[in-house]
Design a binder for these strands. Structure first.
Length: 289
DNA sequence: CACTTGACCTGTCCGC
DNA sequence: TGCGGACAGGTCAAGT
C-alpha cells in the first residue's frame, strides 16, 4: 500500500478513533507480523492506553501510556482497521467498507479494547510488521536514523531537496526518489505522478538534472501528496483507511495505471515501461530522456 | 560507498 | 476451466 498520503490518512483516522482506549488483550498468529508478541512484549501492552498516533515516512507510531510505542510498517498490503461492536456485526456498513467482514484470513494481529471494539492489523502478503519499542528509543532505531526528510515539512526547501539527491547522482531519478534515505515517503504511485508533473523522464540520470528541474519536482511531490491526503489516499488494490474505507486519489491520477489513456496535458497515449525494476507510467511526449 | 537484483509472501490476471 | 508465469503500493540482504 501505503505511501506517505495513505499512512497519513490512517494516522488521522486512528487519532479520531482510538485515543484513550485501553488494550485488554493482543493476539497474533504470525510471528513475522509481530515478532516476540507471545512473550516479552505483552506486559507493556496489556492495560496500556493509547496516548498518540504519529507518522514518520511510511511508518506509523502508536504511543502507549506505558512509555512504549507500537512501530508499524504496512509495506505493500497492510491495513489497520478499527471496528466497533455496532459496526462489526454489519449495521448497514457501506459497500466501500470492510468493516462488517473483519477479522478475515489476512488478519495478522488483533488488539482487543475489551468493549467490543478492535484494531485489526491485516496484511495479505505478510511483508508488514508491528514492533514494540520503548518510546525514547524510537528515534534510535535503524530506520529512523537513516530515513530522509519529510517532504511536506513547512521548513523543507527546494534547495535542500536537490541537495539530498547528490548521494545518488549516477542512478535514475526514479530509483533515487524511491530511496527512503533521500526523501521520506515517496513510493511508486507518487514517483510516477510527480515525475509526470515535472515533465521528467524517470530514467533520467540524477546528475544530469538542472536545479530548475529539481525545483519543479519538489513542487510536484508536495502537490500530489497534499492532493492525495485530501482525497484520502490511493486505493490501487488493498489500501483502506482506519474505518475500512477506500481512498479516491486514483480518480485523479494522471499517469499511474493510466496506460492506453490520453495524457491529460498533450493527449499522447500513456505507456507503461520498466525503470529501476518497477512498473513505470509515462507520457512519452512530455517526458523525454 | 553506490548501485542492481533477487527475496520475502499471497492473490489475481492474462495467455495458452 | 486449468495451469504457468508475470506482476502488485516496499524494503532488505546480497552481489558486483
Amino acid at each position: 500500500m501505503p505511501e506517505l498520503p495513505e499512512v497519513e490518512t490512517v494516522k488521522r483516522g486512528l487519532n479520531k478513533l482510538i485515543i484513550g482506549r485501553k488494550i485488554t488483550s493482543v493476539k497474533s498468529d504470525n510471528p513475522k507480523s509481530f515478532p516476540n508478541s507471545q512473550v516479552d512484549v505483552r506486559s507493556f501492552i496489556i492495560n496500556a492506553k493509547i496516548t498518540c498516533v504519529r507518522r514518520r515516512a511510511k511508518v506509523l507510531l502508536i504511543d502507549l501510556s506505558t512509555n512504549y510505542t507500537l512501530v508499524i510498517h504496512l509495506k505493500m498490503t497492510g491495513q489497520l482497521v478499527f471496528v466497533t461492536k455496532a459496526n462489526r456485526f454489519g449495521a448497514g456498513h457501506p459497500n466501500d467498507s470492510l468493516i462488517g467482514l473483519l477479522p478475515d484470513k489476512s488478519t495478522r494481529v488483533t488488539f482487543d479494547f475489551g468493549d467490543g471494539s478492535y484494531l485489526f492489523f491485516n496484511d495479505q502478503r505478510k511483508f508488514g510488521w508491528v514492533r514494540l519499542v520503548p518510546t525514547p528509543e524510537v528515534p534510535n532505531i535503524d530506520f529512523m536514523k537513516k530515513v530522509g526528510p519529510e517532504p511536506l515539512d513547512d521548513d523543507f526547501t527546494a534547495l535542500q531537496f536537490a541537495e539530498r539527491f547528490k548521494r545518488r547522482s549516477r542512478t535514475t531519478i526514479k530509483a533515487a526518489i524511491l530511496d527512503q534515505t533521500v526523501i521520506a515517503g515517496v513510493g511508486n504511485i507518487y514517483a510516477d505522478e510527480s515525475l509526470w508533473g515535472a515533465k521528467i523522464h524517470p530514467a533520467k540520470i540524477v546528475g544530469d538534472l538542472s536545479f530548475s528541474k529539481f525545483k519543479h519536482l519538489f513542487n510536484e511531490v508536495r502537490y500530489v501528496m497534499n492532493l492525495s491526503i485530501e482525497k484520502g489516499g490511493s486505493t490501487n488494490r488493498n489500501y483502506v483507511n482506519a474505518e475500512g474505507k477506500k481512498g479516491s486519489y486514483m480518480d485523479f491520477a494522471r499517469v499511474f495505471r493510466q496506460e492506453g489513456l490520453p495524457c491529460p496535458r498533450c493527449g499522447t497515449e500513456i505507456i507503461k515501461i520498466k525503470v529501476a525494476s518497477r512498473g513505470t507510467h509515462i507520457c512519452p511526449k512530455c517526458q523525454r530522456l
